[in-house]
């Protein structure tokens, strides 16, 4: 489903060159709910950007749903993101001037799908995510949790093989966060998709089945959650050098 092989990536920050990933190897071979944990500056956001095809590695390969992203042109990459990937950001996911319905439908509108198809699919997703009453509201009239559910609906529009979430609960309270983690886990299970959540919160990772630890741009290893609580996850995370 998702594989990064010896991926290197660096950025120029002013006069300094920052090595964000140094030969990262990470493989996820099955559907499920996975976490990628790391401190700030560990390279986890870079990992997500590369996995989402938003950026290209300096070297190495990024394979998502069988496709080597590094070989795709910009146009093909764009198409790939639209049809086979879903992305949820931490905040400002939604276009502020569009309604929830319009935001969720946007990839399909860009793809040129018929109106009937769009209406049916978006309504189905809104119903499943329990936000059908908010369809005509703009983001400024919705709570953070509702906005993130709209973002998930948009990400799920084309039933992607992989859904990537970048600190999706970073702006939510604990109750909404809890609800969102459970939702992502349910999606992974019911839809049989691979959900990869980048997070620094042990409480978030505790809802996943496996946790990968990234530090200093490298994969430090992974562990199975197997019912661990957040303290347990935190402890295992620290053991792996996170």
């Amino acid at each position: 489903m998702l594989a990064l092989e010896q991926v290197h990536k660096s950025y120029q920050l002013g006069a300094q060159k920052v090595q964000a990933l140094r030969g990262l190897d990470l493989r996820i071979d099955k559907p499920g709910f996975f976490a990628v944990m790391g401190r700030s500056g560990s390279g986890k956001s870079t990992f997500l950007h590369l996995a989402a095809g938003l950026d290209r590695p300096d070297s190495g390969r990024v394979i998502v749903d069988g496709e080597d992203l590094s070989k795709l042109s910009d146009a093909k990459l764009t198409q790939f993101r639209r049809g086979r990937l879903g992305i949820v950001f931490q905040k400002f996911n939604l276009i502020s001037t569009m309604t929830a319905f319009q935001n969720a439908a946007l990839p399909a509108v860009i793809d040129g799908k018929p109106k009937a198809w769009i209406d049916a699919r978006v309504n189905e997703l809104f119903s499943a995510l329990e936000i059908d009453g908010r369809a005509q509201h703009r983001p400024d009239a919705m709570s953070g949790g509702e906005q993130q559910r709209v973002a998930i609906a948009r990400a799920m529009l084309f039933k992607p093989a992989v859904l990537l979430a970048d600190e999706p609960t970073g702006n939510l309270d604990s109750a909404n966060s809890e609800r969102l983690w459970k939702l992502l886990g349910t999606l992974a299970q019911e839809q049989k998709i691979t959900v990869v959540m980048v997070t620094h919160e042990p409480a978030a990772a505790a809802h996943c089945e496996r946790v990968f630890v990234i530090a200093d741009g490298q994969n430090k290893g992974h562990f199975e959650v197997n019912g661990l609580d957040s303290i347990g996850v935190a402890s295992r995370y620290q053991q792996l050098g996170g």
Binding site: L54, G83, I110
Partner: peptide
Amino acid sequence: GVIRAIGGHK
């Protein structure tokens, strides 16, 4: 950026 991320061409 979000539009590009969700599959909008440049």
